[in-house]
Design a binder for these strands. Structure first.
Lengths: 199, 199
DNA sequence: CCCCTAAATTGACCGCGGTCAATACAGGAA
DNA sequence: TTCCTGTATTGACCGCGGTCAATTTAGGGG
């Protein structure tokens, strides 16, 4: 028994599934995404969906990964931040995207941790990219803005940790008036800021 | 239409539901917890379950909250850590509990963010307790061990952020040899450590 | 051109969380 | 004791994610 290369109708089907899902998300958000609706739009049977994606979460991770990619690219295209405040400002779009919806946040969290491992999940690759971008920013910043006693890679990972913390808080604090930036900045100042005299 | 005080059979039913759920978790873990099994054990109808708990997650949050409470209490009873390394060591049991199971971690994350808000969820209250405990530790530590330029409350919240980051990583990095402490410590040293000379 | 086999697709089916109109019950008032 | 009203419980039912044995189709070899 030998294996053959995938037929081209496979990719056609796959693409129409993705397209259908994209449409539904665009129209009604991730919360309204049903596998049965996706396959109905794509004019395939339900089983076909699961022949292409392990589960619904994987498909969502794919869509979210694409979007995050675009957001990240846009951030990367802008001039790099020169201060911690600018850095906090720069990553706001990403936080807004991830924090737009509990479901998005959950999916991101589930797959983000895999960043350290080799994987096919686009969303994980994105998290790696993110860390690299932050690390690049940090080493390019004026030395008086950033502490020099910690590895930039570790600092970059820390930014992620705080980002997630702030977003998680946002979901529970609906009646909360403090903005995302205002929550994030104190962490980043303390985490990234240069050595200061003891109080 | 006026309201009456709850009847006592209500609490009886509620307790038997909780007890049944506890048994199942003890026997087969959270992954094997089914509402239908719980109600079968508790000898009530399915609908009754949802008259007592908003959804399955809430019940799990309750059980997990109880367990976390016990773990936290034990940590609190021990002598407070005198160094960052000791601190990292001290919170290992909590991380082990949260990180024992993907489901536990998910539930914890979902309800932990509410720590800053007034709420009935025991699990959230626990997260508040946690922050307070850490803050207490930090102010009691020898000044040469801890940076003095940042509010202990903020530092305590940061510990949580890093804890979650490390646990999230653990789930994706099954073939990873680095231990939990080894992952956490670098973050904590950089986050909590006293001001050092620039590199 | 047909045949053969692995790839692709199908849809009936299942498990399980969650709902709700109907019913039974507790316990205070008369 | 009886009635009455809000509380507690019931279980048939639904929605939706996910499975799998059966079926169709692509496309290379003879």
């Amino acid at each position: 028994m030998q294996t053959r290369s995938p037929q081209k109708r496979r990719t056609v089907t796959r693409n129409s599934l993705i397209a259908a899902a994209c449409d539904i998300v665009a129209e009604n958000g991730f919360g309204a995404l049903r596998v049965e609706d996706i396959v109905a739009r794509a004019k395939v049977a339900k089983g076909t969906f699961f022949a292409h994606f392990e589960d619904k979460d994987r498909l969502m991770a794919l869509l979210i990964g694409q979007e995050m990619d675009a957001v990240l690219q846009k951030i990367d295209d802008a001039p790099p931040p020169q201060t911690i405040a600018e850095l906090a400002q720069a990553i706001i779009p990403l936080m807004d995207y991830i924090g737009q919806d509990r479901i998005v946040f959950d999916v991101v969290l589930r797959f983000s941790g895999a960043a350290a491992i080799e994987t096919t999940e686009k969303i994980s690759v994105n998290f790696l990219k993110q860390v690299h971008l932050y690390a690049r920013w940090l080493v390019a910043m004026p030395p008086d803005q950033i502490r020099g006693d910690v590895d930039p890679g570790l600092l970059a990972e820390g930014i992620q940790a705080f980002m997630i913390q702030v977003i998680a808080l946002r979901f529970c604090a609906l009646h909360n008036s403090v903005s995302t930036t205002d929550r994030l900045l104190p962490y980043l100042v303390a985490w990234l800021g240069p050595v200061r005299s003891q109080q």
